[in-house]
């Protein structure tokens, strides 16, 4: 009889170390993506809200493609298109960061847009009659109120991103899920997956805690 869970055969320190290495890669992917996609998303939202169709339409197409096709497919495409079609060699990790960034920027853009549009028109009008410039109005009046409103949605997306990093395994990035998969093969055990699950949970607990702190910090006013 084959026993798939062979506890005695597992070298735990080695297993933990290998999964911790994968976790570091997850953190790298996560922070780079957040750092790049949050500002990019804001830019995309502004372009999406442009009154010029020439700007609006390409942005709409970008949003449709990013949100309408699997992220896994996008990763594979950006990994193999440059090397196979353009004959430009690319490294796995930068491709993963690039793919995650432009994908998440699309989702963030729509979150920003929804929030920007929910700010009462009276806020802009008040700023306008007081003589604030459009840039001052956006940076000082609109954006701070937008930030407060988007925190819950951005928190959710961030937690999804932690889990979505597992998709980078399809282009061979040695992140947590891929490392767990190879350990499964080595030990013929599901233990590596269980440990990986715990690692993901710990990361997302930290993410959730961080955002709930941010939310509390912004609680000093209503509206």
């Amino acid at each position: 009889m084959i026993n798939y869970v062979m506890l005695s055969a597992i070298n735990y320190p080695a297993l933990i170390q290998y999964l911790a290495e994968g976790t570091l890669t997850v953190l790298e992917l996560f922070f780079l993506t957040i750092l790049l996609s949050l500002p990019l998303g804001l830019l995309v939202a502004r372009l999406r809200m442009s009154r010029y169709k020439v700007i609006q339409l390409p942005v709409k197409l970008y949003l449709l493609i990013m949100r309408g096709t699997p992220l896994m497919l996008q990763l594979v495409f950006f990994m193999f298109f440059p090397s196979m079609v353009l004959h430009i060699p690319v490294a796995r990790l930068p491709v993963a960061v690039f793919s995650f960034t432009i994908n998440y920027a699309a989702y963030f853009a729509e979150i920003y847009r929804g929030s920007i549009e929910s700010i009462p028109a009276g806020q802009q009008e008040a700023a306008y009659v007081l003589g604030l410039s459009p840039m001052q109005t956006f940076m000082r009046i609109t954006l701070p109120q937008v930030v407060k409103r988007i925190v819950p949605a951005i928190a959710s997306e961030s937690m999804t991103l932690v889990k979505d990093t597992a998709l980078a395994s399809v282009i061979g990035v040695a992140e947590l899920f891929k490392n767990a998969t190879s350990l499964k093969a080595t030990y013929a055990s599901v233990i590596p997956f269980a440990v990986a699950a715990v690692f993901y949970l710990i990361m997302n607990s930290a993410v959730a805690l961080f955002y709930s702190r941010v939310e509390k910090k912004m609680d000093y006013y209503k509206g």
């Binding site: 009276g122 806020q123 604030l132 001052q136 109120q145 006013y221």
Partner: peptide
């Protein structure tokens, strides 16, 4: 100066900052 029906104060600023914002920025 324009005073609105719905006040349109800036909710994220204190009352003092609501009043000083434009004199300082503009």
């Amino acid at each position: 100066g324009l005073v609105f029906q719905n006040f349109n104060l800036f909710p994220h600023y204190s009352i003092l900052k609501n009043i000083t914002e434009a004199p300082i920025q503009v």
